[in-house]
């Protein structure tokens, strides 16, 4: 493999991993606070549709990104009020959010099907970006890629090194004790869920503004669900989530290249690779960790404070 091709493959793996890791990191924070939000796919796709629509209308990519994030936050807010303050069932409400999001994205995007716009540009530093193999990989990505890496570092630092992170983890591990210590359990959870929604919206905006710069119905194609699986796969740790996302990005890119090279396998089998890989990853993980659960102890349980 020539250095140019190797570089191209590596760059595309990182790009494919970026929406997965951004969405997964947001969900990771929500889950560490004890809330399982199955609406990632819905928030992501609304982020993609709303972000693209806003970017077309205003001509500004930055505004598009902001609207994508905002859309994710708003949907997460609805979800949060239902499951945190009204103790509605988290699994069912998350599903409802995904169904709503898919429909809503279709409504928002219906006027924008077939439109194209310039992809958000890549970083270009003289000399550095032109280095062989690592040039484009390290110094020539789009801003989202760096945001994804920054997010992983920031979240790892926040969860493990700050008082706020400790509080958030306490809420997720044992909400009754956290409440007894005077921590506003439901408020912490709500903020964590809003953060997760913002990340899902950002991941969606990445898809429609940079990864494939157009809107197509159903364009998230299950990435939200793969992000949810990544959180489990990563044992709720940010850097492992990034590693997992690279693995999945690799599977996606490999699949694309295999299709282009027409190696004789049916295309349906190749496009199924990311979903198969998800199931396999979950199985492998469960084989490795049979002793006790590593999930946050209060994950999925509503907290209803005594009056």
């Amino acid at each position: 493999m020539s250095p140019q091709i190797l570089e191209l493959v590596l760059v595309s793996i990182v790009m494919a991993a970026t929406p997965l890791v951004i969405a997964a990191l947001g969900e990771l924070v929500a889950e560490r606070a004890g809330v399982l939000d199955l609406g990632v796919e819905g928030m992501m796709i609304v982020g993609a549709a709303a972000g693209f629509a806003a970017a077309i209308e205003s001509g500004s990519s930055l505004l598009g990104v902001a609207v994508g994030i905002g859309a994710g936050v708003v949907l997460a807010g609805v979800f949060g009020v239902l499951v945190i303050f009204m103790a509605a069932n988290q699994v069912a409400t998350g599903l409802a959010l995904t169904i709503l999001g898919v429909g809503l994205s279709g409504l928002i995007g219906s006027g924008y099907v077939g439109m194209k716009r310039e992809s958000i540009g890549h970083l270009d530093i003289p000399v550095l970006s032109d280095l062989p193999v690592i040039g484009r990989l390290v110094f020539g990505q789009d801003p989202f890629v760096y945001a994804g890496i920054g997010l992983a570092i920031a979240i790892a630092w926040f969860l493990n090194r700050t008082r706020g992170g400790l509080t958030l983890r306490a809420v997720g591990e044992n909400h009754a004790s956290a409440h007894a210590l005077g921590i506003p359990v439901r408020r912490v959870r709500f903020l964590a869920v809003l953060f997760g929604g913002g990340c899902a919206g950002l991941a969606g905006a990445y898809l429609s503004l940079a990864y494939t710069p157009f809107w197509a119905p159903g364009m998230t194609a299950g990435r939200g669900w793969i992000a949810l699986a990544l959180v489990v796969f990563a044992s709720w740790r940010p850097f492992r989530a990034y590693a997992g996302a690279l693995l999945f990005g690799g599977a996606t890119v490999l699949q694309l290249h295999a299709q282009a090279a027409s190696i004789g396998l049916p295309g349906q089998l190749l496009t199924a690779v990311p979903y198969l890989a998800t199931i396999l990853a979950l199985v492998v993980l469960s084989l490795r960790k049979r002793r006790g659960s590593i999930a946050p102890s209060s994950l999925g349980m509503p907290f209803i404070p005594e009056r």
Binding site: G42, V78, L82, M86, A87, A88, N89, A92, T93, L95, A96, L97, T98, I99, L100, G101, V102, G103, L104, S105, G106, L107, S110, P217
Partner: peptide
Amino acid sequence: PLDMTRAFQGILLMCVLAADV
């Protein structure tokens, strides 16, 4: 658009879950 139906169904499920509370 047909997506209106799907959006409505999502809203309906949320309302049902909220009413359950």
